[in-house]
Design a protein around this nucleic acid. Structure first.
Lengths: 207, 207
DNA sequence: GCTATTGTGTATCGCTCGGTATATTAATAA
DNA sequence: TTATTAATATACCGAGCGATACACAATAGC
């Protein structure tokens, strides 16, 4: 049902029966994402959101559901936008380049002057209280890990990593450095400092 | 004035003029620490605290000040208690042992079945909103970093690390892995998984 | 025109938050 | 005893929280 509605909306934009929506849902979602990104989940209030999105509360609820639902959508938007460096890194030609691209991508994201000095995923995961959101974070971490592991398994098959390398452990390790860089940035580390950490992590990469 | 009062209290316990306190402040602080540790700063309410501490609100305010002040005290208590593995690690005889002890200490702490599966410092730093608490976290991070850097400088002087090693960058790197392990544990990584990450980090240690 | 449908703006809802005023109780000092 | 001091328990404060009820405005189909 949902995809049918979406398809219809895309085909004939002005065909909705009732009053047309007065704001751009994509733009509003992007604004919401930035607020959650900067303030975390518990640190973000509905007033913060409606102010940033430029809409009223009922419009927010009608378009995105409740706060938690909006956060889910914002997190997905984040993984497809700012966090897209992960997918790009995976397409590098060898394992070393994958890791280099990944870690530099993280640093670029963390030190972009136009966005918050943290990762929305990490910030969200540690600021959601006992919320049922936890499962989503665990799932996303597992997905990112699996993608890296698969890439490293291919690298081993390509003789790009030692045959006795542990793809799973290497993937976890890279993810861990990624997380650590995020906490560093969140608590004030500078770009130069982050890059030196990346340098050390890369220097020790196998082969 | 304050230290005089404290001194008097310590000398003659039953000499306080008014009604004696009906609870053990150290025990209450320990309880408060555990709540903040598990739920983060914003995720912890005063009711959570008073319930866990077994005291009423006015008693809490009289003994510890407001929520932020109590968090400061709890964080200090944490750094002297659960987080004491850091100081122990620094006393190891060589740099490699320092790092090994440190990272294994972190994993032990993160996987202790009697305590929350996270680090109170990291959890607090990413769940305090825009609060003025941020400065405290930055200061503690800087202090931990400085301690590690000093230890590695000594290791270089002892010929325990290569002469061209960058003590500062190495310290930051170890701290980063520490943080990363914390995020891993906070989002569900198991002890076995964490230990494999530590193994990789240690395998790549210089010399 | 009319009706159905849907988004908008305002004005709340009940609840919980961090923090306190007040009266009472339990100790010391005289 | 009486006065003083301090901690306790209850009950409450204003503010902000997430979430909605309701009346109105804007579109579509007829």
């Amino acid at each position: 049902m949902t995809y049918l509605l979406a398809g219809m909306k895309r085909e004939k934009v002005a065909s909705a029966p009732g009053r047309p929506r007065a704001f751009d849902t994509e733009k509003a979602l992007d604004r919401a994402m930035r607020v959650f990104w900067r303030k975390g989940y518990l640190g973000t209030s509905l007033s913060d959101l409606t102010d940033a999105m430029g809409i009223n509360r009922p419009s927010l609820y009608a378009a995105f559901g409740n706060k938690e639902s909006l956060f889910h959508k914002a997190l997905k938007h984040y993984s497809q936008g700012p966090s897209a460096y992960l997918g790009e890194a995976l397409r590098e030609s060898n394992a070393r380049a994958v890791v280099g691209r990944l870690l530099h991508g993280v640093v670029d994201l963390l030190t972009d002057p136009h966005t918050p000095t943290t990762c929305m995923w990490v910030h969200g995961a540690l600021s959601c209280g006992d919320d049922p959101l936890r499962g989503v974070f665990a799932a996303q971490r597992a997905a990112g890990l699996a993608a890296l592991r698969t890439r490293f398994e291919r690298a081993i098959a390509d003789d790009d990593l030692p045959a006795d390398a542990d793809a799973d452990a290497l993937a976890r390790y890279v993810q861990t450095v990624n997380f650590g860089l995020t906490v560093q940035a969140s608590t004030g580390a500078t770009r130069k400092e982050l890059l030196r950490i990346v340098e050390i992590a890369l220097k020790t990469w196998p082969k």
